[in-house]
Structures are given as C-alpha cells and as structure tokens.
Amino acid sequence: MRILHIGTDSFGGYGGIALYNRELIAAMASHPEVDEVVVIPRIIVGECEPLPKKVTFVSAAARGRLAFLRAVRGAGSGFDLVVCAHVNLLPVARLVTKHPLLMLYGIEAWKPLRDPISNRLLRGVRGVISISDITRERFTGWSHYDGPSQLLPNSIRAEWYGIRPKNLALAARYKLEGKRVLMTLGRVVAAERYKGFDEVLEVLPHLDADVSYIIAGGGNDVPRLQRKAINLGVADRVIFTGLFPEEEKADLYNLADVYVMPSRGEGFGFVFLEALACGVPVIASRLDGGCEAVLGGQLGQLVDPTNPAEIRLAIIDALASAKRIPEGLAYFSYENFERRTHAIIDGLA
C-alpha cells in the first residue's frame, strides 16, 4: 500500500499541526501493509527530525508555492490513499485524486471555507479524520458532510516529560521563588484572542497575592496584555516569557502548579497533554476541544470560560492538588495513537 501525505508542515515544522502530522506519518508508515508514505510539505522552517522507515520526504516541495504544486503533480497517481492534511489544501490534493482522506484539526474547519472551490471539493472526500468530536460536529454542522468520519486525537510521548524539580535558574529568571504559579502556553496574537489569557488575568486580582501567572509564548498581543495586567494591578505577578527555546518547555511546565487555559478556540489542546505529562493539574474549557483533551473532566477540571467565578474557584481547587501524572493519560499514548491509525487504514482498505 502506498500513501501520499499532502500537508502544510510536518518534519522540520513548528507547532501543533506539524507535530500531529509527524506522529500520523510515523503511525501510517508502521502499518505492516504500508510499503511507502510519500510526504509533500508546503513549509519547512527548521531542521528535519529523523524520518521513520518507509517515509519519502519531498523537501524540495517547500521551496515555494510553485514547487509545492509541481511536487504534488509529479507524485503521480499510483497511490492507494491520498491524505489531504489541511482543508485549505483540497484544491491541491485534487491534482492527484478526487477522493482524498481529509484531516481536520480545529478552527480552520469550524466555518465554511473562504474558497468556494474547496467547499465544493468537500463533497468528494473519501473520509474525514478529526482530531476532536467538537471539530467534527462543527464541521458537519455547516458542510452537511455525511460521509465516513473517524476521531484521531493527539498523542503524547509521556516519557519525554515527567515530574521534575523546579528549575531554580528558570524560577530565578522569572522571579518565581516561593510563588505558586499558573501557566498558559500559546501564541499570544490578536487574531487568537480566544486562548483564555484575558480570562485568567481577570481573576488574578481575586487570588492570593503569592499566585503568579506565566504567559508562555510570544506574539503581537503581548503589549495589550501587559497594559491589561497594569490596569488590573497585577503587573508584578504576570510573566511574559516571549518566544522560548523548545528545550525549555518541559522545565517551564514544571515551574507551574496549575496549567489553566479557559479557551474557546482549541481544536483539541495538545498543551493539556504536555502539562499532564509533567504532573501539573490542568483546567480546560467546556466550550472547545480542551474538554476532550481532559477526557470530559477525568484528567482535569473543566470550566466555562465565560464564567470568571468558576475559573477562580477551579484554580483554588487545583492549587490545593498534588502533582501527579494521571493514569488516564495513557489513553493518549503513542501506542494507542498508532493502533487507532492502523484501524483507520484497515477500515479504508
């Protein structure tokens, strides 16, 4: 069996979708019936991770739009399965097949697509794989897609994380010695003002004075949030890390006593799995995919992001909780992800 994966980014990519695709490609390639997975990426921003066996990575495709189109067209038609790993790439996938398998992650699939051609091409897809049920429901709600669909939530390599002592140098850098720490990690950009940073900032004045808040990530909305923190009188309790090196991430999570992200725009919320893998109690949103990342409340607390009192009381409860890695996190192990991926391939065959 030969599989063609047409995606925005995977190996050499940055962020949640790239990570998800790397895991997906690896899991597809490990299927015993799969002979080759050809991967055509639109973007490569960094050094590529080692490729799994049976994966052919067409790095030349990332040189530009034309190169990408040429690579897809040049891939030919000898594939048993074409994975269109982003809904915006449906017209490109159409160059090689009328019936791709479509991947859905989050907000890109919550509303009709800007491009009317893509909306039309949806009718021909062979199936839909969604990272979460909420994304699937919102997608089918507007598209009226009624073909086959499967869920394939993120996976976490828990062994890469773990409960660690607080990194004292990091704590000193951010002046967090002796503090209880809340944390949210994500892009801090004006176009994504649904991450929950504002909501946590607004309850901070109503929490004990020894509670600080790390906003881990950079972006063009940082100045606004800094002004907001000043207006709320909590500027000395809020840390903006800006962009941070990937290798600091696990230590950052381990600085936190509570990971809280009362968001409204997460397709799933891989960050919750990372925090849980560090033993940090998490607070997720009832109104987006975060709810599914904590298994409907089994792995962490759920709050209505529009209710400040609920957020505040959940934080107080979570601050009183001990750090531990919940057994249920195994539901999202890579082994389970791989098993689910193989079942999807078997189902298609």
Binding site: I107, W110, K111, P112, E137, R138, G141, W142, A191, E192, R193, Y194, R264, G265, A309
Partner: peptide
C-alpha cells in the same frame, strides 16, 4: 449583585474574535 444582563451583553462586544470562530447557526445549535 452577582449577575448583570447589561454587563454580560457589554462584555460580549469585546469578544468579537470568539463570536466569529464558528458558523452562527452551528454555534447556536450547540
């Protein structure tokens, strides 16, 4: 006073980004 209808509606004005994430009839249904 722990709830103000006017206050809640006023806050909604500032959450436009959240309002535009989902198709309106789908969000209402949900």
């Amino acid at each position: 006073r722990y709830y103000s209808i006017a206050g809640i509606l006023g806050r909604g004005v500032h959450d436009e980004a959240a309002a535009r994430l989902v198709q309106p009839n789908v969000l209402l249904r949900e």
